[in-house]
């Protein structure tokens, strides 16, 4: 009799079910990350505590200073490639400097630095935090009266964000310098003339937008790393999963945000 009165359940197509699960998972992750970021921001006053400042400086060193060499090489090569392409297409002209500004300053520099950060720091932070939660070190901190979010999360988010913003500026300078150096050496474009063209084309608004992008990218990828790492873990196999999840979500956030900001700031 119970069977007769049971509601008829129509099986959903598997694809719809999977898509729904993905969407729900994504929303859940976004909500969790936002909550973690807000918790961290609410604890900014904890920066007056020496151990928190020490963690912040260590994070800036690891994410920012140790990345200088890699960012310099990649940026210089990028500048050279862009200039050689422009010269190849349009010949030696003042267009070279303009294209450098359009591409490097507005678009590529923040994105490139953020991608390098995702490759270097996001898995490191997620793995470190996941290992700490697995081994109950977070409980140890709590038991000592130390706020784990203030001590572990806030300095990591802040350190990575500051690093992305600073490296974005650094990347822009190195890429433009590298591109102009190639232009001067290979195709005999006078560097001062090109520099003048860059200066003419470069508006404070462009720099502002690129720094805002850097800020958003930094906050987003750092929060993704911390959110995946800081969740409760009960097995060692969850540690690489935390790193992979953090990288994937950080990349997704990065490209979505870049698209949205670029669309909103179209001239």
């Amino acid at each position: 009799m119970a069977l007769a009165t049971a509601p008829v359940v129509t099986p959903r197509p598997v694809a719809v079910h999977l898509l729904g699960a993905k969407v729900v998972g994504g929303v859940h992750h976004a909500a969790g990350s936002t909550a973690l970021l807000l918790h961290a921001v609410a604890r900014l006053a904890a920066l007056r505590r020496p151990p928190v400042r020490t963690v912040l400086l260590r994070q800036v060193y690891f994410s920012g200073i140790e990345a200088l060499e890699t960012v310099a090489i990649v940026s210089a090569v990028m500048g050279v490639v862009i200039v050689s392409q422009v010269v190849g297409l349009a010949g030696a002209s003042s267009l070279t400097g303009k294209v450098l500004v359009w591409t490097v300053v507005r678009e590529i520099a923040p994105l490139l630095v953020a991608i390098l950060m995702v490759a270097r720091s996001v898995p490191a932070v997620a793995t470190e935090l996941a290992s700490m939660t697995l081994h109950r070190e977070v409980d140890t901190l709590w038991a000592a009266g130390i706020d784990p979010i203030a001590y572990l999360i806030l300095p990591r988010i802040l350190g990575m964000t500051l690093s992305v913003v600073a490296l974005t500026l650094y990347c822009q300078v190195v890429a433009i310098a590298g591109g102009l150096a190639l232009a001067a050496l290979a195709v005999d474009l006078p560097p001062l003339h090109q520099l003048w063209a860059v200066g003419q084309e470069l508006h404070p608004c462009d720099l502002g937008i690129s720094l805002i992008k850097g800020l958003l990218f930094g906050l987003g990828i750092a929060t993704a790393a911390c959110h995946h790492g800081y969740r409760p873990h009960t097995s060692a196999t969850q540690i690489p999963q935390a790193a992979t999840g953090a990288v994937m979500h950080a990349l997704l956030f990065l490209f979505l945000t870049d698209g949205v900001v670029t669309f909103l700031t179209l001239p």
Binding site: P51, E128, S131, M132, T140, L141, A143, A144, G145, I146
Partner: peptide, 29 residues
């Protein structure tokens, strides 16, 4: 909890801090 001292089985040290920094961490915080 800051008025309480806890010694965990296994010590409960923070794995990425040197021993000296571990000893001083709660005090410094």
């Amino acid at each position: 909890l800051a008025r309480t001292g806890v010694v965990w089985a296994g010590g409960g040290l923070v794995s990425n801090l040197q021993v000296g920094n571990n000893l001083l961490l709660p005090f410094a915080y």
